[in-house]
């Protein structure tokens, strides 16, 4: 039997890794596009829940953080985005409007995270451990 050096990368490895990544990419794309519309956005500041807003109601909210941190959250036509922000990079303001479940806008300087979720009418989901 031909001896194969197992410590050398083989063509099989490359095929295996490529196939793996392809499956993941397809699964990710499916999940992304099949992901349902969310109906609420949750704003957290430094890990603490700041507020929860319904996506069904148009509104403009100023999220004040720290001394003079500010992110202006706009909700319109079922989508949420950050219109202006006090942070220097403005990445959050450049982010496209979010509306799918699980999408989020993050402002690292102000530690603000805005996430779309689907709240069941009424109660918070139970966590069973």
């Amino acid at each position: 039997m031909e001896h194969i050096d197992k410590t050398r990368l083989r063509r099989n490895d490359v095929i295996f890794i490529a196939a793996l990544l392809a499956v993941v990419a397809i699964a990710g794309a499916c999940l992304y596009f099949l992901r349902g519309e969310g109906n609420t956005v949750t704003v957290t500041v430094d890990g603490e829940v700041y507020a929860t807003y319904s996506l069904a109601v148009d509104r403009v909210e100023d999220i004040h953080t720290g001394k003079d941190g500010l992110n202006r959250l706009v909700i319109k036509d079922g989508k949420a985005w950050v219109e202006t922000a006090s942070c220097p990079d403005g990445i959050c303001a450049a982010h496209k409007p979010i509306h799918r479940e699980g999408e989020s806008i993050v402002c690292l300087p102000n530690k603000v995270v805005i996430t779309v979720s689907t709240a069941d009418s009424g109660n918070q989901p139970d966590i069973v451990v």
Binding site: T7, R10, N12
Partner: peptide, 15 residues
């Protein structure tokens, strides 16, 4: 099964 090298096996392990 012996169709991957150490690196391929390790990738499967990581995932």
């Amino acid at each position: 099964l012996n169709f991957l090298s150490v690196t391929g096996v390790s990738v499967a392990g990581g995932v």
